[in-house]
Amino acid sequence: MTAAAQTRPILTVQGLNAHIAGQQVVEDVSFTVPATGITALLGRNGVGKTSTIKAIIGLIERTGAVELDGERIEKEPTFKIIRSGVGYVPEDREVFSKLTVAENLRLAERDAAPRRQLVEELFPDLLARSGQMAGTLSGGQQQMVSLARALLNTNKILLVDEPTKGLAPKIVAEVAETLAEAAKTVPILLVEQNLHVVRQLAGGAVVVSGGRVVHTGNALEFLDDAELTQQLLGVSTEPAAGKTAAKGAAL
């Protein structure tokens, strides 16, 4: 964390606002993502984490300043932002269900020399299923396709939105492992509800509430502070009490 803080951040978000259908979903959000390791973007359900990610790459209308590796990108269209070196793994995976696995991957290739070999090594399962329609894959396999699409290219940053959502524990572990592996070469901004995964992976943490950033700091320190976690995420980090607390927060 301290080492990362000394170098220039890879991504700087300053005063980001975003609207969907006239409703403000991101309000004056500011944070930075260091150039190494995994930074977790945390918060309760519906506080604007996904919207923040989408606003960064221009999938929803936004104002404010976004700087990627020293370049301002907030005025650029989505495809140019992605091409300048962003890998995006969306919530709910969003694979093209009527395209084959191979087509899904080919569509994502934007480098002159995409790292097909790496992807094949990471996800041997996909190679075997390359002719299958992506819509017929299991959730875990679709997540592999979605991750593979981002890992095919050389990126300055990966934006990964809830990669373990709805997956079986075994697959969750696999996904976490993949992310840890990827993080050795590329910084990641990770939205994740599963706090075990966050503990396992994240260095820094940015906590959002009501569309605003309410806390930034070290992820482990944050999660160890039970009171603060309870207050900002509505969950206790103690597994036993976790469920009831989450329910209380939802109501």
Binding site: F79, P90, E94, F96, L99, L107, R110
Partner: peptide, 15 residues
């Protein structure tokens, strides 16, 4: 074909 299914994801792949 991909765009008919999900246009914004196509742009989010840098296309």
């Amino acid at each position: 074909r991909a765009g008919v299914e999900n246009r914004s994801m196509v742009t989010a792949l840098g296309i």
